[in-house]
Design a protein around this nucleic acid. Structure first.
Length: 536
RNA sequence: GCGUCCGUAGCUCAGUCAGGACAGAGCAGCGGCCUCCUAAGCCGCAGGUCGGAGGUUCAAAUCCUCCCGGACGCGCCA
């Protein structure tokens, strides 16, 4: 099935191809500023008038006639100054599509990803402390992105990369040891590099460990415990992973050596001041980067190269990394490194999300894992609930910093936009419950009111809209779209009574619309993994 | 200093990638609406030099240049 906008675009492109000498011109089909003008607007004549040396109004007139005779789904195409076209679809077409979708009980998203596999790596927070709200934002973004790809037929794997190498784990062990000493009555002094969070105090009281254990043993213990906290928090956010990959396994000594050999073979490494460098500056990075430190220890960077080489070797068509914006300076380094290893770097895509600035009663809360002063994702989930957290983290573009005032989020839960959309779904369910199976008239030749026409048209555009959302990796647009549809429905609900035993044909038609709207809201909420309740 | 992102209504933000018809929501404010499918809702009013200045264009919030403000990054940390 083709969506309304796609139908129009195809015909406009056909017109360009057959009736003009131009090529490579986008169709310019868009939504009009308001629905009184029509269902779709076309600005093409204004864009090509100069190239064709013609009056835009003349082109518009010609294109309008072409559209009307080649697109039977269109009922009217009007020309407007200074050269716009406004298209209106016929009620017959909209009703036919509506009935088809309602009968199938599915929006039938095109399975454009059927032959592609995709790996989405996200969260990947270090196992040195519980997840905070900032992690939550990346988690929801990655998860919904994965769900979107799945809905379009892609084979998707969700992956968590555990940075359990390097000095941070050793510091974690030392931090826990200090807390144990403290428990035993000693006065302790924390270096600035150590983790001072209260979660380690909690851990220090666990019976399995005691102060005599080595830093290494304590590190292993706390890493395992904290990781299970993290996966618990994610589960409460309705997020589960297909793969968990450990840095300690994927970046073993032998694998590191193999990477160095590979890079040396293409003459991209050199030694300087006892350290081994990669010539990333010749591949687009600002400067060369250290692979092996002067003390012989591998850097995080070379371990990451090993991990990503492992990813590439697994043969996915596309790999997406979701990172916090504080890593943006690291992007080029990784991409240059992968290029040095001969990987096709266009298969790897890095999406950054801006961090969350937390406020409490208008006052900024400084978050730092080491200082241990932060609000955990668990606390937020506890106070606000998974539906509201998931929905709200997607009400802003991932490129924009998110200001999150805890007091606002917790004290005004009724005003949360997620309830607005859920309530629309509830009202729809309530109407269907009430109507039962009393109305079974034929509606094929019916006419739609303006409000119904607009509602059907908008929902028919949803699959195409989702495809755009997927291509742009911008799942936050779904929450805006759902809010818009809910708003249009709430208005419709107040102005039109659906169930009316005096006019069964009209009632049947409106019930079909109700079914269509309910299915659409449910599909959208499912993509976000937010509940679509029948009762509230 | 260099780099990335952000700057749109009192507040939080869509819209910027693919330039088009009077710049849109939500919240907060003010005023209305429940004998009727859930008022967690609806309707109306008010609120804007789209950070600033130039430029390109028939047309700029959108593209280009410069400037101002904010966040983040620029380790042999991860």
């Amino acid at each position: 099935m083709k969506f309304p906008k796609k139908l129009c675009e195809d015909t406009v492109l056909e017109y360009i191809r057959t009736k003009t000498p131009l090529s490579g011109v986008p169709a310019g089909v868009e939504l009009p500023p308001n629905t009184d003008l029509g269902d779709l607007a076309i600005a093409l004549p204004l864009r090509i008038a100069k190239k064709l040396q013609k009056n835009p109004m003349e082109i518009a007139q010609d294109l309008a006639e072409y559209l009307l005779s080649n697109r039977p789904e269109l009922e009217a195409v009007e020309v407007a100054k200074p050269g716009f076209l406004n298209c209106r679809f016929s009620d017959r077409y909209l009703i036919k599509e509506m009935l088809r979708i309602v009968d199938a009980d599915s929006l039938e998203l095109p399975q454009i990803g059927q032959d592609s596999s995709i790996l989405i790596e996200f969260v990947s927070a270090n196992p040195t402390g519980p997840l905070h709200v900032g992690h939550g934002r990346g988690a929801i973004y990655g998860d919904v992105l994965a769900r979107l790809f799945q809905a379009f037929g892609y084979r998707v794997e969700k992956e968590y990369y555990v940075n359990d190498g390097g000095s941070q784990i050793e510091r974690l062990g030392r931090s826990l040891k200090l807390r144990l000493k403290e428990e035993a009555g000693a006065t302790v002094d924390f270096e600035s590099e150590l983790y001072k969070g209260k979660y380690l105090k909690k851990l220090a009281r666990r019976p399995e460990i005691d102060v005599s254990m080595s830093v290494e043993e304590l590190a292993k213990f706390s890493k395992k415990e904290i990781l299970s906290w993290i996966f618990d928090s994610l589960k409460k956010s309705r997020i589960e992973f297909d793969n968990t990959v450990f840095e300690s396994e994927v970046a073993s000594r032998s694998k590191i050596e193999r990477i160095i050999e590979k890079l040396a073979a293409v003459d991209l490494v050199y030694e300087k001041e006892e350290a081994l460098f990669l010539k990333t500056s010749s591949l687009g990075d600002d400067k060369d980067r250290v692979l092996i430190r002067g003390n012989g220890e591998p850097t995080y960077f070379i371990n990451d190269l090993a991990y990503h080489l492992n990813k590439f070797d697994r043969g996915y068509d596309r790999m997406i990394n979701v990172w916090g914006h504080d890593h943006h300076g690291y992007q080029q380094r990784l991409l240059s490194g992968m290029e040095a290893l001969g990987c096709e770097k266009s298969r790897l895509e890095i999406k950054l999300y801006q961090l969350v600035d937390l406020y409490r009663a208008g006052e900024p809360v400084k978050m730092s894992t080491r200082a241990g002063e932060f609000v955990t994702l668990d606390e937020l989930l506890e106070e606000v609930g998974a539906d509201a957290v998931r929905f709200n983290f997607l009400t802003k573009n991932h490129n924009s910093p998110l200001d999150f005032d805890i007091d606002v989020a917790t004290s005004r839960t009724e005003e949360n936009p997620v309830y607005y959309v859920q309530y629309a779904h509830t009202r729809l369910a309530s109407i269907l419950r009430k109507a039962g199976s009393d109305f079974e008239n034929s509606v094929v030749g019916s006419e739609l009111s303006k409000a119904s026409h607009d509602l059907v048209f908008k929902t028919l555009c949803f699959p195409g809209f989702l495809e755009d959302v997927l291509k742009g990796r911008e799942p936050h647009k779904i929450t805006f779209w759902l809010r818009e549809l809910a708003s249009k429905f709430h208005t419709f609900y107040v102005e039109h009574r659906v169930i009316n035993y005096e006019d069964e044909e009209l009632t049947t038609l409106r019930l079909k619309l109700v079914e269509l709207l309910k299915l659409t809201l449910k599909t959208g909420l499912n993509l976000l993994d937010v509940r679509a309740p029948d009762k509230m």
